[in-house]
Amino acid sequence: MNGNMIKRLLLAVVILLTLMGIGLAGDLKTRLTTLEWPPYISQNIDGQGYVAEVVKGAFKEAGYSDASFVFLEWTETVRLAQVGKADGYFPEYYSATLEKDFEFSDAMPGGALVLAKLKEVSLAYTGKVEELKPFKLGVVAGYINTEEIDSADYLTKVEAESDSVNLKNLFSKKVDVIVIDQLVADMLLSEGLFSKFAGKVEILAPVLEVKPLYVAFSKSSPNMPGVKDDFNKGLASLAASGKMDAILKKHGLEGKVGVE
């Protein structure tokens, strides 16, 4: 086989791979949707936050030249991924109810999901969800909470469009208690107008759950299942190399997040 024939064959392979939507080495790219959810991810914090750095780092380990994020409101974040306009979305909690449309990545460390109330509100809580029955419970629309809370039709749930609005509803007494990630609560209560309420909020014990975080990859994406498999391999490499721990340390999250 002469040189010209080899060149023609290689060109044909490149064209075929392009038509099949398969990138060459160093040219792999992915697009994911996400939300403003500091301290985990935000356009306004260093490196866009811990989870953003982990996701980008995992794809880089897997040989991707770019992992781009589109920041949206939560319901739109999920919807665009669901219809395949992005390869997936993150960060998400695991729920079997989502498996019709999504496949979950391997787990990334996440924080504690908790109940928060104003100190002036009398609420005797020992860890039983039914103890919340007499109260208005604030949740964020579209969020996965715990299986028990999400399936509890006997609870009076008041939906908010974001964690910030959920907190505002708590302060204005539209709700009595809210579900929120503890690190998100700590971040929101340390900044801006919310800071004046920090001393008035009580985090109830015990925590609801420690919630690992996932990328939910869309079954409608033409890049599935390869993009999920690539991410999982990259995530394992990131953890094994110590880069995951370095990212956690950079963001001050060592010992504050976990996978169980």
Results as ranks from 00 to 15, higher is better:
residue 31 R to S: 13
residue 259 V to F: 04
residue 62 A to R: 05
residue 227 V to I: 13
residue 164 S to Y: 12
residue 218 S to K: 02
residue 244 M to V: 00
residue 221 S to D: 05
residue 155 L to G: 02
residue 158 V to Q: 09
residue 162 S to G: 03
residue 111 G to N: 07
residue 3 G to L: 15
residue 123 L to S: 09
residue 191 E to F: 06
residue 249 K to G: 03
residue 56 K to R: 15
residue 134 P to D: 08
residue 90 F to S: 01
residue 180 I to F: 12
residue 107 A to E: 12
residue 19 L to Y: 04
residue 59 F to R: 00
residue 4 N to M: 11
residue 187 M to W: 08
residue 207 V to Q: 04
residue 25 A to E: 14
residue 120 E to N: 13
residue 254 E to K: 12
residue 190 S to N: 15
residue 134 P to M: 02
residue 172 S to R: 10
residue 190 S to A: 15
residue 103 E to L: 06
residue 249 K to W: 06
residue 55 V to F: 07
residue 94 Y to N: 01
residue 34 T to L: 07
residue 259 V to W: 01
residue 209 E to M: 07
residue 95 S to F: 06
residue 29 K to N: 01
residue 229 D to I: 14
residue 39 P to W: 03
residue 104 F to L: 11
residue 212 P to F: 09
residue 114 V to Q: 02
residue 100 K to Y: 04
residue 105 S to Q: 03
residue 235 L to I: 00
residue 116 A to R: 13
residue 233 K to A: 14
residue 126 T to A: 11
residue 18 T to G: 12
residue 24 L to M: 14
residue 111 G to K: 03
residue 102 F to Y: 10
residue 1 M to Q: 12
residue 147 E to N: 12
residue 82 Q to S: 13
residue 95 S to Q: 01
residue 212 P to L: 07
residue 165 V to K: 10
residue 1 M to L: 11
residue 80 L to N: 05
residue 193 L to F: 14
residue 139 V to P: 08
residue 93 Y to V: 05
residue 244 M to D: 01
residue 185 A to P: 04
residue 50 Y to D: 06
residue 68 S to D: 13
